Computed example of a mutant assay.
Amino acid sequence: MKRTSSIFLLSLILLGGCGAPRQAVLLQTAGMQNAYERYFIDSILQYGLDHEALYTMLGSVKPMSSLVSFSFPVANTDTVSSVKADVVDRKQQGASLDRLFVIQQALNKIDLPDLRFVMLPYRASYEGDRIMQINVVRVSALDSLLKVRESFFGQFGLVPGADPAVVVNTLEFNDRYERLRGYGYLFGYPDYAVDFFVKAFQEDDVTGNFVERNFFQIPTQTREDGYFVYAYPKGHTPTVEPDSAIYYKAQRILNRYRDIRDNYLNADSTLQAYNLLRDHAAPARR
């Protein structure tokens, strides 16, 4: 999980670590009175804006983007049976639940137009660790996707207006290939790339042979490749529609972000990300 460690120090600050946060212009939000909480929220939002979540938070190229993830030792380690009711021991794991509570409360206080922040527990656990992924969803883009792709999402009873948390959790805890397809749509990949992605995984499962692929890269503030990226078949040549169209929509959003970013920098070069989004997150720019 590449982002678990990227915000580890921030989680220590928020969740009771020693030392005060760096001096910054605090979020001008009445519901947020805790300085650690404000710093934490600004930090995860800055991470998202500097990476591919920019295309959800300042646009609608991606209906959903991942932000950061955390790992907590709260999962059931009994691989034989999962019928018992008492899985978590407050004495041993209570601190982890308390930290999760603090993170959830901070996310609940984010109030930005058309954006929802969802903390998703991954279905799979790893030796007792549960990965918790924070995602951001642009609600209007999700509603449009649920309408356009009702032939897929309709099988789960998901229609425009569905709660983003319900949509994401429905996919996470569903069949492997439906999960892959659903995430592909949510992450803004073109239809042909989603089809290829699902079929490639299926072929790998059936034959054990890895399906060769190329990758279409879209730049972010942090780097030119490796973040907003999708796979396509070997031998395929990207086309004006949809590939170039997605690329140039994203490029316009990135250029806009670069134009306004310096106006929200603190003295220590951290970003007043919440204030930036408060001023510019709506209306959505495609």
Results as ranks from 00 to 15, higher is better:
91 K>D: 13
91 K>N: 13
91 K>T: 07
92 Q>F: 09
92 Q>E: 14
92 Q>D: 06
93 Q>L: 00
94 G>M: 04
94 G>F: 08
95 A>Q: 13
95 A>M: 02
96 S>M: 06
96 S>K: 06
98 D>N: 00
99 R>I: 02
100 L>F: 04
101 F>W: 04
101 F>Y: 12
102 V>R: 14
102 V>S: 07
103 I>Q: 09
104 Q>V: 05
105 Q>M: 14
105 Q>Y: 05
105 Q>P: 10
106 A>I: 08
106 A>Y: 13
106 A>G: 13
107 L>P: 14
107 L>V: 07
108 N>I: 05
109 K>T: 00
109 K>F: 00
109 K>W: 03
109 K>E: 00
110 I>S: 09
111 D>Y: 12
112 L>R: 00
112 L>C: 01
113 P>S: 08
113 P>R: 03
115 L>N: 10
116 R>T: 12
116 R>H: 13
116 R>V: 09
118 V>L: 08
121 P>W: 11
121 P>A: 04
124 A>E: 14
125 S>K: 06
125 S>G: 09
126 Y>N: 12
127 E>K: 09
128 G>N: 13
130 R>H: 06
130 R>K: 11
131 I>P: 00
132 M>V: 08
132 M>T: 04
134 I>W: 09
134 I>H: 14
135 N>A: 13
135 N>R: 11
135 N>M: 15
136 V>W: 14
137 V>A: 06
137 V>P: 10
137 V>I: 15
138 R>S: 04
138 R>C: 03
140 S>T: 04
141 A>L: 03
141 A>W: 04
143 D>V: 01
143 D>M: 05
143 D>N: 11
145 L>I: 01
145 L>Y: 09
146 L>G: 04
148 V>S: 12
149 R>G: 02
150 E>M: 01
150 E>A: 14
151 S>F: 05
152 F>M: 00
152 F>I: 08
155 Q>M: 12
156 F>S: 01
156 F>P: 04
157 G>Y: 07
158 L>Y: 11
158 L>R: 01
159 V>G: 03
159 V>L: 13
161 G>M: 09
161 G>P: 10
161 G>W: 11
161 G>A: 06
162 A>C: 07
163 D>M: 05
164 P>I: 13
164 P>N: 03
165 A>S: 15
165 A>E: 15
166 V>Q: 07
166 V>H: 09
167 V>C: 09
168 V>E: 11
174 N>E: 02
174 N>A: 14
175 D>P: 06
175 D>F: 00
175 D>H: 00
177 Y>I: 04
177 Y>W: 08
178 E>K: 01
179 R>K: 14
179 R>G: 00
179 R>H: 11
179 R>V: 01
180 L>K: 05
180 L>F: 11
180 L>P: 01
181 R>Q: 15
181 R>A: 15
183 Y>M: 06
183 Y>P: 07
184 G>K: 00
185 Y>F: 12
185 Y>P: 06
185 Y>S: 07
187 F>R: 01
190 P>F: 12
190 P>Q: 02
194 V>Q: 01
195 D>G: 05
196 F>K: 04
196 F>Y: 03
197 F>A: 05
197 F>I: 01
197 F>Y: 15
197 F>V: 03
197 F>H: 13
198 V>Q: 03
198 V>H: 02
